[in-house]
Design a protein around this nucleic acid. Structure first.
Lengths: 130, 130
DNA sequence: AAAACTATTGACATATATAGAATAGTGTGC
DNA sequence: GCACACTATTCTATATATGTCAATAGTTTT
């Protein structure tokens, strides 16, 4: 079986290029979560489906939950068990902290820079192809 | 010592936020190299400095060389030792293959998608901050 | 001939991703 | 009352990616 991401996924699925997540998508997971949590506190499971709305689909739940826990240990987010009865087992509510907001602002600058870089790359890609 | 990349780099350098590469930058290394090689064959060492022009600085040389070797094993690029005498040890000339061009086109679509995602994120970030 | 620069490779450590199972509560149909 | 589907989170094993530094080696400068 071929490598699944980064190098390798391009030439793999001749004819049937299936759903592939690029590493780029995954590396945007963190800012995406922060933005969503800035808007309002949410549960992990909710975030999972919110990400799909973003088009950030095919990210494995484990990755999302782990990222949330990592961000909690950095104190970018805080969580409590939701006391309200719901349709299932107990669930955590995550919300952004003050430090999380700082992180988000750093991410904003990061994303702006990246956007510029990608534009440059795309320009140069298409320059001699037309 | 704190984590060096991904999560962690934001809150680290209070006051002196030094040169940090974001994971995003590194994940653009591959398309960047492909674009440069599409324009013309180049040596690894040359590519290294070309990347700096891109603003993709602070990527460790090993990483670049390794990426080139990986792409060669995927037959996206080919290399030969440069026979011309130069100021130093022998060096490899890398050039794009037909498969490499396909990879580049795949990358193009990938980058366009990513660009869209980032725009969305940035919009939503700034929406309630103004 | 030491030092500085050009150029590439290799080995090892750490970080992150993928997949799938484990755990567990709730609701539905039978 | 129990099989099944759904909600919700965690854990563990393994694969892959990335970071860091040392090693190798030729060329030019002092």
């Amino acid at each position: 079986m071929m490598p699944r991401h980064r190098r390798g996924w391009v030439m793999g699925g001749f004819g049937a290029p299936p759903e592939r997540r690029s590493p780029l998508t995954v590396s945007l997971l963190e800012p995406a979560l922060l933005v969503l949590l800035k808007e309002q506190p949410r549960h992990g499971y909710t975030l999972l489906s919110d990400l799909e709305t973003w088009g950030m689909t095919f990210i494995h739940p484990s990755v999302v939950y782990r990222t949330l826990r990592d961000m909690e240990s950095l104190e970018w987010v805080q969580s409590d068990w939701d006391t309200a009865q719901t349709q299932g087992p107990p669930r955590r509510t995550y919300r952004l902290t003050a430090q999380g907001e700082e992180a988000l602002q750093y991410w904003q600058r990061e994303l702006e820079k990246t956007q510029g870089l990608i534009s440059q790359l795309l320009e140069r890609m298409t320059k001699e192809r037309r």
